[in-house]
Design a protein around this nucleic acid. Structure first.
Length: 727
DNA sequence: TACGTTAGGATTTTT
DNA sequence: TCCTAACGTA
């Protein structure tokens, strides 16, 4: 491993006071963080329990733990290396009662939160009101909590969206009350309540301020207002606060991150040292030039210029395609070529702004037999089957967990529908008891015969699940619930690839429970209390395919070769960002995407694109225009060319990279295609099949007269018509 | 209650 | 275009 450079060394050894390290992409910030911990412990005799290191994801925390363990011999179990949320849970479990919760409070994840809000909105009769969608309200509440303003929610909401002013306050109050009644906190409450704890409970504040002599925060540009305040208080004892971040990589404003935290660090912590890490050890100089060219157009930034000693690669490529099909095919073909040259699939990635672009990419990768893996979408613990199984565990551990019970009361199907659920819930409300209790005493409490029967059946099943539960390990309980509930049978009978995947996921869950059971003090309660915070069980196992992911998901990763697809206006930057004038964050995203590449970078744009069912001419991204022409190897058509659903012409498919790039080695099956000519048989979605009678015009305005067999003669702009060429 | 049809909506995502 | 959620019907 290389020697630390001067700046890195300075960052490692400046241990007292406030320090801001502006660490550009690939500048070795993780290295600095681990070396610094090692320096504190080995060199300065700091005890591990006096150190607090905070990350954003479990994965990052895990990685840091492993790397520190490699360079430090001291016992690290006493050192706090965790995410913000895990840290808060730890503090709250200790002091929960001083905030009016019990120590075993529940953590509501996104899904639980949405369910609860749905219930409240329905109760208030706002279900059909489009202004009050559950997702929107959830985001608004989350933003409100993250911002930590002095406004109350009703005011906050009204400022942002007058259409929601009437009921915002009431919804929020209901939501808060309901959570508290359930002894539950949502993700944002974890942070917010910890802040309240530290602000109002002297004992807790003094304890932690004295405990943590050295505090370190990774990815500081992603912190929100509450997180900033937490850090501010926690470092109030010794004042040794060390944050690492890159304002140019702040891409999470939409979920509450506030870039002001990093921009104003020196104001927030007067006398702070600022260290810039600008030497990049990852990318070729030519790639960094592109990144610098783009990011320098941002106004609100600290200012950094990345440089690199590596300079033996090729110029980044800008490829202009005629259609998204051609774009995808170009990528697939080039990947195939690079693979033949010896680049491993796992060292290549395709990045895009929106998930929807992955579909066509997938299609073409399959066509060219390129192995790939798609990341994103739902994470392991958000999957339905996993949440269902967890719900079963939850009701075993806590019979009063109504929300969890409702989740699985009719999964698998038990003929307990809306009407029956309603009746049960009402009886529970009326009797002041849980729904399970109602089912237990069904005969005494209910009158409907069919309902009593169902309730008894369910309760008997539940009892079998709970039988000597205390003596069983978590994975045993899971296996039993899986069987007894009929969930296993349901999936087995489905006989679809989806059900197959679900079964594999549940097997994976049981497996992770098994691992947990090995721990000391393993208990069902312990397992459930931590599970809401775990998310990346499906961590990146490289099975060796090309990686497809959003640019957001790619932050922190690196690849030898990176393709950025869909560099079109309205996609990247997104239409929303253009409308709301949020271009700077998009530009930072572009910077992140570009700097993922180590040796080769391809940026692609298409002159024509079908998105959400509409085929439209597409203009190249403004970010591409910001790059000096001399830095890029431009390939492909400059002028928009007409293309229907298939790549335009046979001559184009042969040598897409006509400048000497990728000729095709493998024969690949192709669908019939060709250019529009008089006599071409075409198909239109509504008009059906027809024959081209004449063509006039040029470029975008090329018009064809088509004689449809059934609909008769129609004049069509080829650029918009979305005609399928049959012959 | 379950299933088929239709209308509307469609970024980015961790905990 | 495609997916989901909500609605109406057997």
């Amino acid at each position: 491993m290389y020697q630390l450079n001067e700046r890195q060394k300075q960052a490692v050894e400046t241990i007292s006071g406030a320090v801001l390290v502006l660490a550009g992409a690939g500048s070795g910030k993780t290295r600095v963080l681990t070396e610094r911990v090692a320096y504190l412990i080995n060199g300065k005799n700091v005890a591990p329990w006096q150190i607090l290191a905070i990350t954003f994801t479990n994965k990052a925390a895990q990685e840091m733990k492993e790397r520190i363990a490699g360079v430090v011999s001291a016992d690290m179990r006493d050192m706090w290396i965790s995410t913000f949320h895990a840290m808060c849970v730890r503090m709250l479990r200790r002091y929960a009662d001083s905030l009016g919760y019990t120590k075993n409070f529940l953590i509501y994840d996104t899904d639980d939160t949405l369910r609860l809000l749905k219930k409240i909105l329905e109760r208030m009769g706002l279900k059909e009101n489009k202004s009050y969608s559950d997702r929107y309200i959830k985001n608004l509440i989350s933003k409100y909590k993250n911002d930590n303003t002095t406004l109350d929610f009703a005011q906050y909401a009204e400022e942002r969206n007058p259409f929601v002013a009437d009921h915002a306050g009431e919804i929020f109050d209901e939501y808060t009350q309901e959570l508290h009644k359930q002894n539950a906190m949502d993700f944002d409450d974890l942070l917010l309540n910890t802040l309240t704890l530290l602000e109002t409970v002297d004992e807790a504040r003094i304890y932690y301020q004295n405990k943590f002599h050295y505090i370190m925060v990774d990815e500081y540009q992603d912190t929100n207002m509450v997180q900033y305040k937490l850090i501010k208080i926690l470092s109030g004892g010794y004042g040794n606060i060390f944050v690492v971040g890159d304002d140019d990589q702040s891409i999470y404003a939409f979920r509450g991150a506030n870039i002001r935290n990093i921009l104003e660090f020196e104001k927030d912590f007067p006398g702070a040292a600022v260290i810039r890490l600008e030497q990049n050890y990852r990318s070729d100089k030519k790639i960094l030039d592109v990144a610098n060219c783009v990011i320098k157009n941002n106004e609100g930034r600290k200012g950094k210029t990345l440089w690199s000693n590596i300079d033996d690669g090729e110029k980044p490529v800008l490829y202009t395609a005629g259609s998204e099909y051609e774009e995808a095919e170009t990528i697939a073909r080039e990947i195939q070529r690079l693979s033949d040259e010896g680049t491993r699939y796992a060292d290549m990635a395709i990045l895009y702004r929106i998930h929807t672009l992955s579909r066509i990419l997938e299609e073409k990768l399959r066509l060219y037999a390129v192995p790939y893996r798609i990341y994103g979408g739902i994470s392991f613990y958000e999957r339905k089957e996993i949440k269902d199984m967890i719900a079963y565990l939850n009701i075993i551990a806590n019979p009063a967990a109504d929300l969890q019970l409702l989740r699985i009361i009719n999964t698998p199907k038990r003929a307990i529908g809306m009407a029956k659920i309603d009746a049960l819930a009402r009886a529970a409300e009326y009797g002041g008891m849980s729904i399970l209790e109602v089912m237990q005493k069904a005969e005494a409490l209910l009158s409907d015969k069919a309902l009593i029967k169902k309730a008894k059946e369910f309760y008997e099943m539940y009892e079998r699940m709970c039988e000597n539960a205390e003596e069983l390990t978590v994975h045993e309980l899971l296996e039993r619930a899986y069987e007894i509930s009929g969930y296993k049978k349901m999936l087995e009978e489905e006989q679809t690839p989806e059900a197959e995947a679900r079964m594999e996921n549940i097997a994976e869950l049981i497996n992770s429970a098994y691992t947990y059971d090995e721990e000391e003090e393993a208990s069902l309660e312990g397992f459930l209390q931590n599970i809401a915070l775990i998310t990346d069980l499906d961590s990146m196992d490289d099975k060796g395919g090309v990686t497809l992911m959003t640019m957001h998901a790619a932050k922190g990763l690196e690849f030898d070769t990176v393709f950025i697809a869909g560099m079109d206006e309205a996609i990247f930057p997104s239409q929303r960002a253009i409308d709301e004038d949020n271009i700077e964050e998009e530009r930072r995203l572009c910077y992140v995407a570009v700097t993922r590449a180590k040796r080769k970078l391809y940026m692609l744009h298409s002159n024509m694109r079908t998105l959400y069912g509409r085929t439209q001419p597409s203009v190249r991204s403004r970010f591409l225009d910001e790059i000096d022409d001399s830095l890029l190897n431009e390939i492909g058509k400059k002028k928009p060319v007409i293309s229907a659903k298939q790549p335009a012409s046979a001559s184009e498919r042969k040598g897409l990279f006509s400048g000497g790039f990728g000729f095709q080695k493998k024969a690949v099956p192709q669908k019939v295609s060709g250019d529009y000519k008089i006599g071409t048989i075409v198909e239109h979605k509504t008009f059906g099949r027809g024959k081209v009678k004449s063509i006039a015009g040029e470029g975008d305005s090329r018009v064809a007269v088509v004689d449809f067999y059934e609909a008769g003669e129609k004049k069509m702009f080829l650029a918009f018509a979305s005609l399928k060429i049959l012959k």
